[in-house]
């Protein structure tokens, strides 16, 4: 996973720079800037965030035997679970900060509020929480493959949903709107601003996302306490 940790930010920075060149080009109209910003969010949420979360997961996922070894050596199942959680959060934080800064710089020129930044950060930690729960699958390889499937497909499904709704000029409301905020908060917020087709408020949507994010970590810690392992 080491190359992924180097290549991912390198590609991200390269593409960001290229997009920013267009973005800051003189005479660039505001609606084009908004579209470019949407492209940035797509890239971030559909590719870079999941890839980075999976590289972090490779860091903390363990075989069942290794988990028991750690629990035996440290004399505590709980300490192992907490250490794994903190390890992943610490791994993800520099990336989350980088994404937040870039989003702030770009979104401020679109006159977008702080919601989009909150959405980017929440999304990173939400998917980290989901990946952590999936790490309880016994095989490390199965964990990474299942996580790749879940973490890539979930945000993509939101983009596909927007495409379909956009085609039919339909409004997104109720549970579906809340789910899109949970699965891809920043892209949903951007969609809401550009199309005015999401009836759920950003504050409610992001609160739901934050709630699910916290729940994921609680689920992981509780599930870790109950997981059965045969040595």
């Amino acid at each position: 996973m080491f190359p992924l940790e180097v290549i991912t930010p390198f590609i991200a920075v390269s593409l960001f720079v290229e997009l920013l060149i267009y973005y800051f080009a003189e005479g660039s109209p505001s609606d084009l800037r908004m579209q470019i910003f949407g492209g940035l969010l797509m890239l971030m949420t559909l590719f870079f965030n999941p890839a980075y979360v999976i590289s972090g997961l490779a860091h903390v996922a363990r075989s069942a035997d290794m988990t028991v070894f750690e629990a035996s050596m440290f004399g505590s199942w709980r300490d192992v679970a907490v250490a794994r959680t903190l390890s992943l959060l610490i791994y993800m934080t520099p990336y989350a900060i980088m994404q937040a800064v870039v989003t702030y710089l770009v979104s401020s020129l679109c006159l977008l509020g702080p919601y989009v930044i909150m959405g980017v950060v929440l999304s990173i930690y939400l998917y980290s929480g989901i990946a952590l729960s999936l790490s309880l699958i016994r095989s490390r390889t199965a964990t990474i493959l299942t996580s790749a499937l879940a973490l890539f497909m979930a945000p993509i499904s939101v983009a596909i949903l927007f495409l379909n709704y956009g085609t039919f000029h339909a409004k997104l409301s109720g549970v579906v709107a809340v789910m899109t905020y949970v699965l891809n908060p920043s892209l949903t917020y951007w969609y809401a601003i550009t199309t005015n087709s999401v009836t759920v408020s950003p504050s409610l949507g992001l609160m739901a996302c934050a709630f699910v994010m916290v729940a994921m970590y609680v689920v992981f810690l509780k599930w870790f306490d109950r997981v059965e392992i045969k040595v």
Binding site: S63, M66, V68, A71, G75, S76, W77, R78, R140, V231
Partner: peptide, 19 residues
């Protein structure tokens, strides 16, 4: 479980170490 892990340590026959 938490008490058990403090009270006991374990060795198993054929471990798979993957880190």
């Amino acid at each position: 479980r938490e008490r058990a892990s403090k009270d006991m340590s374990i060795v198993f026959e054929r471990p798979t170490f993957d880190i």
